[in-house]
Amino acid sequence: MKLLFLYLSLILFVSPVYGANKLNVITTTTTLKSIVESIGGPLVSVNSITKGPQDPHFIEAKPSYMVKARKANLLVAVGLELEVGWLPHIIRGSRNPKIVKGKAGYLDASSFITAIDSFPLLSDRSQGHIHRLGNPHFLLDPLKTIKVAKGISERLISLDNKNRFIYESNFKKFEQQILDLHQNWTTRIKKTSVEKVMTYHKTLNYFLKRYNLEHAGSIEAKPGIPPTAKHLISLVKKANQDKVTCILNESFFETNAGKRIQKSAPLHLEVVPTEVYSTPKATSYINLIEQLVLSVENCSKQLDK
């Protein structure tokens, strides 16, 4: 009994105190973490549930995530059902009433943007793992990200009003930086000979749309279901006919199928990051988009050779 008491008192009183006075923010993805850090700077301490190389569609609701979420003042999620398979479980398990949906501590990033690729409400699962409410990879469009960053800064202000001016000025800085780079990215992509692009999953649709690149097909025939040989043959045919010059193969997915297409059609395959830290060079939000732009440029260079 004495031992038990000692054990209990140890764990109750020796538990560490994390970042006193900082707003404790938890995000579902590393990309959101990078954006929150740009706005919050040293005023926030941010933890992401998924690690960079992990596909945020398929996360197990590990109890250790509940431990991370327990003390959070704010939870930022992508939304559009991206996290539907695991996040509700983590929120409940954390027993943190502040971050329950509908409370000030719960922020759904998708509420600040208009989604593309939304399906009619009655579409069914024979179409694969689809997101009924729309494509959740909107943060790969830098202009949509500005809207999300604004929403995040407003929420940080409502939770921590005394630092309002810092959040506001950080947001303005972030916005300007993205707008300037967006000019640069647009010009660089326009200069390449790339017009049509294949991807593995529909992860890059927002990015492609923003920079006027056409999505010429997905390697997976249906979301979440591996490609069949027949589907790959049709992609090879399409790549040859429609002059598709580039496969941007998201790093979450295998590259074997893409390489098989590359063997039979005059196009180039680049493995690209889709979240911050999903590849080693994508070390921040800006570097993530920079890597995507570089990959498009690489495709073009390889083909000009």
């Binding site: 764990i11 109750l12 538990s15 560490p16 109890p63 250790s64 509940m66 431990v67 327990r70 398990g93 954390s94 027993r95």
Partner: peptide, 10 residues
């Protein structure tokens, strides 16, 4: 009760 420890302890 989720005990406030650095690991998950319920």
């Amino acid at each position: 009760y989720l005990v406030p420890t650095p690991w998950y302890f319920e």
